[in-house]
């Protein structure tokens, strides 16, 4: 597991409506930062907690979900 540090790139999709949290995450992993070893996704969209992990795992990432505030989560995607 990756240690917490400040250099981890962050994709903030808070406030986004369905399905943009998932679409933007896929876009980040496929186009903007291909092969990025670790990415933090911040979301306030509960369905994203069940839709982002399968998409990330399909691309070879492990997912760790942290609840950071009421209705806000950080998904840490890291290459295993």
């Amino acid at each position: 597991m990756t240690e917490r540090n400040e250099d981890v790139p962050v994709l903030d999709v808070r406030g986004e409506i369905c399905p943009y949290p998932m679409m933007k995450t896929n876009e980040e992993l496929d186009k903007n930062r291909p092969g990025v070893p670790v990415l933090d996704v911040l979301t306030d969209h509960p369905p994203a907690l069940s839709t982002i992990p399968p998409q990330a795992m399909k691309r070879g990432y492990e997912v760790e979900i942290d609840e950071i505030d009421n209705g806000e989560w950080r998904l840490r995607l890291s290459k295993a």
Binding site: M57, G60, E67
Partner: peptide
Amino acid sequence: MTTENVSAKVQPRN
């Protein structure tokens, strides 16, 4: 990679 070693972890707050 195989599917066995990918997983999702949930860390509840408080």
